[in-house]
């Protein structure tokens, strides 16, 4: 459903993608790991339309979307969350989700209200519906990111560190939420996460990015075991710890 064809992107001397190719099929759940600055968030930007690649092509359902605006891609079925939450401040939580339901999913009137209410209930935000979005805590902001993305009725959902900074039970809750959404809508997910454990519990394919290239792609545990990935990971102590934890779980 999604194909990246040799995309390249640089910011001055920083390379965030170099001849990067990737394809994701319907219903896939793909995890993405990689050190800070590997180009993970930039990759999402190029898929969702926030960022234009210098070269290469992005295809969605066989259609070239490289030159299309982010709003058009969203309407085609690409939903994304932001690593640093970007709620519409000045709008209530309900309105944040409603605008996505109306504009992204193309619903109107009562149907849009129903969709927004359903997504809020599903993401555990129902009680906060009337609260100004600017006054949410971090966990709630991350949930709102997820809710807003889900309300656009995506077929491909891009999750950028939705579990980062959360406690273990909170992560478990989020994982359950995402698994449920996948079961219900059959949507494909690409999930960037530093909390490798949350990933391996959910995805059936793992991609490791470093320096704008794919250095590993395959079944999660196998990818984590390859020397190239280990080398990338052992560079940072926290990631190394995460790795051993995952291995212990397995």
């Amino acid at each position: 459903m999604l194909e990246l064809d040799r995309i390249s992107k640089r910011f001055g001397r920083v390379t965030v993608a170099e001849e990067l190719s990737l394809s994701v099929r319907h219903g896939d759940a793909v995890g993405v790991v990689g050190p800070n600055g590997a180009g993970k968030t930039s990759l999402f930007g190029m898929i969702s339309g926030d960022l234009a690649p210098d070269a290469g092509e992005v295809r969605f359902d066989g259609r070239r979307v490289t030159a299309l605006d982010a709003s058009v891609r969203c309407r085609l079925g690409i939903g994304r969350t932001y690593q640093v939450p970007r709620p519409f401040t000045g709008l209530s939580v309900f309105e944040n989700v409603l605008v996505a339901a109306q504009q992204g999913a193309g619903t109107r009137g009562r149907a849009s209200y129903a969709l927004a209410a359903e997504v809020l209930a599903g993401t555990g935000l129902a009680d906060l519906a009337g609260r100004p979005a600017g006054r949410l805590g971090l966990l709630q902001r991350k949930r709102l990111e997820l809710a807003r993305a889900l309300a656009t009725r995506p077929r491909l959902l891009l999750l950028d560190e939705v579990a980062g900074g959360l406690t273990d039970p909170e992560v478990a809750e989020l994982v359950a939420l995402i698994t449920a959404a996948r079961a219900r809508d059959g949507l494909a997910v690409i999930w960037i996460e530093h909390v490798v454990r949350a990933l391996t519990a959910t995805v059936d394919r793992l991609i490791c990015l470093a320096g704008g290239r794919v250095v590993g792609d395959g079944r999660p545990l196998e990818v984590l075991a390859t020397p190239a990935v280990r080398e990338v990971f052992l560079g940072t102590e926290a990631s190394a710890d995460a790795l051993t934890e995952v291995e212990r779980d397995a």
Partner: peptide
Amino acid sequence: GRYGLAARAVSADPDAAAASGVRVA
């Protein structure tokens, strides 16, 4: 209405609004 809600989202964060399907332009 529908337009005003989208407009308020655009004024809060145009990029995030586009990513939510709002035709910002």
